[in-house]
């Protein structure tokens, strides 16, 4: 390949030299350039048979898809777009953990936009579950954006995932490339799942595209007090999205799934195996803490107030529960994991 590229470069320059007998229209030159381009970044043309059918069917599919990773057609077979706010709350983290973990482990590819917050979390959890994931970038294929998620980027590529973009090189993301990217996210997927979204957020644009492309849209209900649940609740209210309360709601779209889990556990807080297991082993303080956290995530001050236990004793209990994995922490709030 390298040799071929060098040969092509040499022939290209020879071709453009004044003493050359070749002209620029020489077919060898075009081949050479082609090789160089392919060597730098891989891409799939819209006329290529490898081009995902679902994406081809949308009104304005990208002409060329640049990609990183190994292209395989099976990765595009069962895609679910998981999108949501960049400012994810602990509730969002919990939801992604429980829904996406289950969905990805059943072989559904998780497609998202590689932004911080819900997007990144969805990619991460999909990888944790041993599933496949596709990240669609709003920028040139050679750019990692946002740059602080390099680790995740490499993890996606390392576990058979794909990085896609319709832009070449190191082009910077622009305000208008984000919604265009969302169109690809929606276009690739059979269905879209909105975890948390504020009113007017980019995730709603993805949901809109999914609607337009006749894909089913799901939204997770949230507290009516939370600003990042306002968008999702609105989707449900206006009938654009179906409400999700358990994994099966989403999986019903992928009914032709390759395999089914033997135990069809519905997604519900009370049946989480780890937690009930933890309860048997813990006593007194930790039981009181678990009882409170069952209904909503709380910070240590609130726990102290509710349980009437001083923060020094509570601090020790929470640390041990964090280390046991009984609890998780997100922005100072604890919840049962």
């Amino acid at each position: 390949m390298v040799l071929c590229a060098i040969q092509a470069i040499l022939s290209y320059f020879r071709g453009s030299g004044p003493s050359s007998t070749h002209t620029r229209q020489d077919p060898i030159d075009y081949l050479g350039l082609f090789v160089i381009l392919r060597f730098m970044a891989k891409f799939v043309d819209i006329n290529d048979s490898k081009y995902p059918t679902l994406l081809k069917n949308i009104p304005n599919p990208p002409k060329i898809l640049y990609y990183k990773g190994e292209w395989g057609s099976e990765i595009f077979e069962n895609c679910l777009a998981v999108v949501g706010s960049r400012k994810m709350t602990s509730y969002g983290t919990q939801i992604v953990q429980r829904l996406v973990m289950e969905i990805a482990s059943r072989g559904v590819t998780i497609v998202s936009g590689f932004m911080s917050g819900v997007d990144a979390q969805a990619h991460k959890i999909a990888l944790d579950a041993g599933g496949k994931t596709i990240a669609v970038m709003p920028c040139g294929i050679d750019l990692i954006h946002p740059g602080n998620q390099k680790e995740l980027y490499n993890r996606i590529l390392g576990s058979g995932g794909l990085i896609l973009s319709e832009y070449e090189g190191r082009e910077l993301p622009q305000l208008w490339t984000y919604p265009k990217r969302n169109r690809i996210v929606a276009g690739l997927s059979k269905s879209a799942l909105v975890i948390e979204a504020a009113l007017g957020s980019g995730s709603l644009i993805t949901a809109d595209y999914a609607c337009k492309f006749n894909r089913s849209v799901f939204a997770v209900p949230g507290s009516i007090l939370s600003s990042v649940s306002a968008g999702t609740l609105n989707l449900i209210k206006t009938g654009k999205a179906k409400m999700v309360t358990e994994v099966e709601d989403v999986l019903s779209v992928f009914s032709d799934m390759l395999f089914k889990h033997p135990s069809d556990t519905p997604f519900c807080a009370h049946s989480h195996p780890k937690r009930s297991e933890g309860r048997e082993h813990t006593e007194g303080v930790s039981r009181a803490v678990l009882d409170l956290l069952e209904s909503e995530p709380l910070n240590i001050d609130e726990l102290s107030r509710e349980t009437q236990i001083t923060p020094d004793i509570l601090g020790f209990t929470i640390t041990t529960m964090l280390l046991d994995g009984t609890l998780s922490e997100e922005k100072g709030r604890y919840y049962v994991s």
């Binding site: 240590i300 004793i313 601090g315 640390t319």
Partner: peptide
Amino acid sequence: GVEDMGEALQ
């Protein structure tokens, strides 16, 4: 003690 360390980790 374990309690002291557990709290310190907070």
